[in-house]
Amino acid sequence: MGIRQGAPMPAILRHGFRARAHPARSVPCPHEPCRARAHQSCIVRVNGRVLKQVHDARIQLWTITVACCPECQVTPGTPCHDLGTPRADVHDRRIQEAKETLA
């Protein structure tokens, strides 16, 4: 008789097992050379080295996904702006908000 595989692990439990990993790993990495999928580590494509940290672009994408910005008052899913002009990055206060929301 072979090994029977049980039901897939619920997402809430899977998240607990990944608690040591940066929460930004829950989104795919938009950093051009990396492009790691969600829940995978960022890598250096040239040599295949796995990075201990995630790319800043991934942290910013995660921040936009999960947190409101106290600086420019946008909701999750909306990029930050400065007086209507879109920013290439996110406000530092929004990153702090995302970390606090996660805790």
Rank of each mutant, 00 (worst) to 15 (best):
G2V: 10
G2D: 12
I3Q: 09
Q5W: 08
P8F: 00
P8M: 05
M9Y: 00
P10V: 08
A11T: 13
I12W: 15
I12E: 15
R14M: 10
R14T: 08
F17T: 12
F17L: 15
R18H: 11
H22Q: 10
P23Q: 09
A24R: 02
R25L: 14
S26A: 15
S26V: 07
S26H: 03
C29T: 06
P30W: 10
H31K: 10
C34M: 03
R35V: 03
A36I: 09
R37N: 06
R37G: 15
A38F: 08
H39G: 02
S41E: 09
I43F: 06
I43E: 02
V44K: 01
V44L: 07
R45D: 02
R49G: 01
R49Q: 13
V50C: 01
V50E: 03
V50I: 13
L51R: 14
L51Y: 01
Q53R: 13
R58I: 06
R58E: 07
I59F: 01
I59T: 10
I59A: 10
Q60H: 13
Q60F: 03
Q60N: 13
L61T: 01
W62I: 05
W62F: 10
T65S: 09
T65R: 13
A67H: 00
P70T: 04
E71H: 11
E71F: 00
C72T: 06
C72N: 08
Q73R: 14
G77Y: 02
T78Q: 14
P79D: 03
C80Y: 03
D82F: 04
T85Y: 03
P86N: 07
P86A: 04
P86K: 04
R87V: 06
A88H: 09
V90E: 10
V90I: 15
H91P: 05
D92F: 03
R93A: 15
R93W: 04
R94I: 08
Q96G: 13
E97V: 11
E97S: 13
E97L: 09
A98M: 10
K99V: 11
E100K: 15
T101M: 13
A103I: 04
A103M: 12
